[in-house]
Design a protein around this nucleic acid. Structure first.
Ligand SMILES: NC(=O)c1ccc[n+]([C@@H]2O[C@H](COP(=O)([O-])OP(=O)(O)OC[C@H]3O[C@@H](n4cnc5c(N)ncnc54)[C@H](O)[C@@H]3O)[C@@H](O)[C@H]2O)c1
Ligand SMILES: NC(=O)c1ccc[n+]([C@@H]2O[C@H](COP(=O)([O-])OP(=O)(O)OC[C@H]3O[C@@H](n4cnc5c(N)ncnc54)[C@H](O)[C@@H]3O)[C@@H](O)[C@H]2O)c1
Lengths: 214, 214
DNA sequence: ATGCATTCGTGACGTTTTTCACAAATTGGT
DNA sequence: ACCAATTTGTGAAAAACGTCACGAATGCAT
């Protein structure tokens, strides 16, 4: 058990392990070995053991890991035993698609409110969630107990929106605008940049043409 | 100039550099130094020079890089001078949100067709794009010249859909289903897993509570 | 022309991440 | 009670990645 800084690569893998354990639990498995887990995806068993070792000794030598026990441990470590309330800023196509995305509920996140600057949208309801005026963000966020913000506005407004979010005291932000944002150390900002992923595919296609077989 | 394998981290950064160069070009800058570029985001100037050096010597000592020249070089390296046709499998909330996402057109990608298994949806049109029966995928993909596929179906169908895509000869796939997929070496598969990012925020919030200031 | 201020390209170095390999712990069969 | 078969936890080695620092090339001022 190391209590140094845990890398994000490690915690991302914990999510994958947990998902797999949930499946195993549903299938009725009682125990699972790191080797067995590793084969399910494209991973090395030592890595799994090391990742888990960061948080304690959960395994039993000669046996493996108890599925239900490890599942609960990881759920707790990832904070998925707590409820979170999400505010989405930008009630456009992406914002509304996310609003009733089942993945949120599955992981104990609940979309509590949408925010937009468009007068036509303010006051309307999408998937049972009300759209508020973005200028009231701090007030509503506080009243609704929002602790996670999602940025789904056009890139040119993203930095300003982020600053508004930070000013309201929220510490966890997910950004979908394709632009790198500057944030304080104490904030957790996760940017999902679709453009980069797309261009990565484009790069691959451009290169594979050069010496590709077909 | 190294012609070894280029890491994905490097190509991802190329996307970021290109985006910045596009802005600089729009502002009318003629040249830019690696130091100057580095300051715009959170990067080291040596890294930028090294990334670029993988593909050639684009800079001029004492001057920096010519914005327009480098912009064109990167556009070509990333394959963004070619047009790509995208097929989206799963015409649900995410699939339709993506359909008229401007980011696609901006990067020379065009959504050519949607595919679904739902009889009610097949035959209808979303943002000028027709929804086809997923069983006709290979035929339509071929006829429409689709070279990039996007998986936007529920996780439990994703692997089967991927196999169908691969069987049709398409080499570049973007997956939004929150599940790790198994694919051949020769395919470029990029998974955007929102759940992992969400859980990463959850982990942060769980940990910051332990010794947080407020 | 010469010197000086820049800035690239890159080898060397340091850090992080992954993989290897093996002692230590546990189970089950005899 | 002991041995063989597992499988963990972890130090050590390897690989990948990032940063530093400096020689070499260029432009500009004098
Ligand atoms: N549509 C997609 O599939 C998709 C995918 C990935 C990323 N994105 C990114 O997500 C962001 C939103 O995309 P979209 O397609 O939903 O755009 P959209 O135009 O459909 O929606 C943007 C919404 O933001 C609102 N808005 C603008 N400025 C605002 C402000 N300052 N405060 C609050 N609301 C404001 C607008 O009124 C609009 O309702 C963009 O940055 C886009 O690049 C979109
Ligand atoms: N909604 C979001 O904001 C969001 C965000 C990130 C990831 N995702 C993921 O994207 C996927 C789709 O999410 P969604 O919210 O759009 O779901 P959805 O239920 O709105 O849409 C899914 C669509 O896929 C179709 N479908 C099902 N099986 C199919 C098959 N075999 N072939 C073709 N089409 C089929 C369904 O008919 C439906 O139209 C899911 O895996 C989800 O986890 C969704």
């Amino acid at each position: 058990m190391k209590s140094e800084k845990i890398s994000e690569l490690t915690t991302n893998r914990l999510s994958i392990y947990l998902r797999c354990l949930n499946e195993l639990a549903a299938e009725g498995s009682k125990t699972v070995s790191s080797d067995n887990l590793a084969k399910r995806f494209h991973l090395n068993s030592a890595q799994i053991r090391k990742d888990l070792a960061c948080f304690g000794e959960f395994g039993v030598r000669g046996v493996g890991y108890y599925v239900e026990d490890l599942r609960q441990q990881l759920t707790k470590i990832l904070g998925l035993d707590h409820h979170h309330r999400v505010g989405i800023i930008g009630a456009g196509r992406l914002g509304t698609a996310l609003t009733d995305y089942y993945g949120f509920r599955q992981t104990n996140f609940e979309v509590a409110a949408l925010f937009d600057a468009d007068r036509e949208k303010i006051g309307t309801v999408v998937s049972d969630v009300k759209i508020y005026d973005v200028r009231d963000f701090a007030k509503i966020a506080d009243r609704q107990g929002i602790d996670v913000a999602v940025i789904a506005v056009p890139a040119e407004y993203a930095q300003r929106v982020l600053e508004m979010i930070v000013a309201s005291g929220i510490k966890a932000v997910m950004n979908f605008a394709p632009t790198p944002l500057l944030a304080d150390e104490e904030i957790k900002l996760k940017t999902i940049d679709l453009t980069i992923s797309l261009e990565s595919l484009s790069y691959f296609l451009a290169g594979s043409g050069k010496n590709g077989k077909e």
